[in-house]
Design a protein around this nucleic acid. Structure first.
Lengths: 231, 231
DNA sequence: AAAAAGACAATCATCCATGTCTTTTTTGCT
DNA sequence: AGCAAAAAAGACATGGATGATTGTCTTTTT
């Protein structure tokens, strides 16, 4: 139990910002109209803040990811940070979107690999899950269970990810649609086993030694669920 | 940080030094001479506090499980609560132990069922994972990733659970030890898939519809990994 | 009956995170 | 150069959570 419970989404952000008129100065996103003005340095700073947030989520967990800590991690003052994001929730929302896009990008990159071997795909997704992005994402997902504000942001993105995950697989193995039940089972198994292993590894519920056999077993299962290559 | 030293003797007394000065050192543990003293009411209150803590973990998550909230949930004053547990961490530790024992009890009860069908065991553990105890446990496990204090308490219990989990299975299917690799794989699969599904369900990463097929698939896999009944 | 111990309640001082506001330092540009 | 806006830093007020202290009432124990 922690000495304090920091959560920067206590207030309805919309309601607050709405009440003050002259506050609309900051554009929601850097002015793309003025082509490449040097102020795109701001975008760089924003990026540093997002990275710092992810790093904090990994290092300290969601509950201890506070605005002062993120600022320090980014090497900025808290004032500077509040200049780029009017409140903690805005920063968090931006981080979530960034995280989501990171996940999608990495996943797509994996699919572009000409080798469509099941082994490669499993390995690739597994490697993804080892990276900080997934840990951070899970921290957020757990927090969202009891945080309506977070859930509202995270929920749609999770649906989209699952959807794109499946779409990618369909595209790679179009003949799999002949057996949709098997297809969905394979997708569910893959996600559950791989993500479950990743989480259990970090939360101390699984031994490292068990990982490799399970990976291989999963590959075998997936192949068994695929439509067999006609002879 | 928290040197919870008994400072009963440390403080010079204040105005109400009505009684004699010599403060005898209080025995480390209250005299339990009278086996059934009415003060077992205290145990009852302690129990209520532990239950309230679990309920708070489920409802509000670890980060928002604060001492005032637990007290309110238990229908007690915060002062009363601090009387039974000197600080929040002590309460939490007691709750963790309670949670752990709950898990073990339920698991053992399942194993006592004379039917040792794989289906029953999988279903039983799955039902376990749906109960509040597991949600609370997972909240703690996630928090422990970034909280050394929690990890110190939780880590050993997790190891013990996994160990007893396996021991139980060994006892039920002694012939399985002929193939230890298969045995460990089956154990890992079971825990990872079932727990992974439970977590994903709560964190919005999985659809309810996928659960049942995966349960059935898991059962098939486990049977395939068991030493085949000799014909 | 007196005394000790226990259960419970109420209040205090402190800490830290948050959002807002104000001031200083860089800049980009005329 | 100079100047206004952006970027950065700092200061402030609020509020929740924590642990500690003190006080009251009840139940044992002697």
């Amino acid at each position: 139990m922690h000495p304090y419970a920091p959560r920067w989404n206590r207030h309805e952000t919309m309601a607050l910002s709405r009440s003050r008129a002259p506050r609309q100065v900051r554009p929601a996103r850097p002015p793309e109209k003025g082509i490449t003005l040097q102020a795109t340095k701001a975008a760089q700073t924003r990026g540093r803040l997002l990275d710092a947030t992810i790093r904090c989520l990994v290092k300290f967990g969601y509950a201890n990811t506070t605005t002062p800590r993120v600022a320090e991690e980014a090497g900025l003052s808290r004032g500077a940070m509040m200049h780029h994001f009017e409140n903690g929730m805005a920063l968090l929302q931006a981080t979530i979107v960034e995280l989501h896009e990171k996940r999608l990008r990495a996943f797509r990159r994996a699919a572009e690999n000409p080798e469509h071997e099941v082994t490669d795909l499993v390995d690739t997704y597994w490697k993804q899950l080892q990276k900080p992005a997934f840990i951070a994402f899970h921290e957020l997902a757990v927090a969202a269970r009891t945080d309506a504000e977070l859930a509202r942001i995270l929920g749609p993105l999770q649906d989209e990810f699952r959807s794109k995950f499946n779409a990618q697989a369909e595209q790679l193995f179009p003949e799999w649609l002949e057996e949709p039940a098997h297809f969905h089972l394979a997708m569910g198994l893959s996600q559950t086993i791989l993500e479950g292993m990743a989480i259990s590894l970090h939360t101390g519920g699984l031994e490292q030694a068990s990982v490799s056999p399970m990976l291989r077993h999963l590959e075998v299962q997936i192949r068994a669920l695929m439509p067999q290559r006609k002879v």
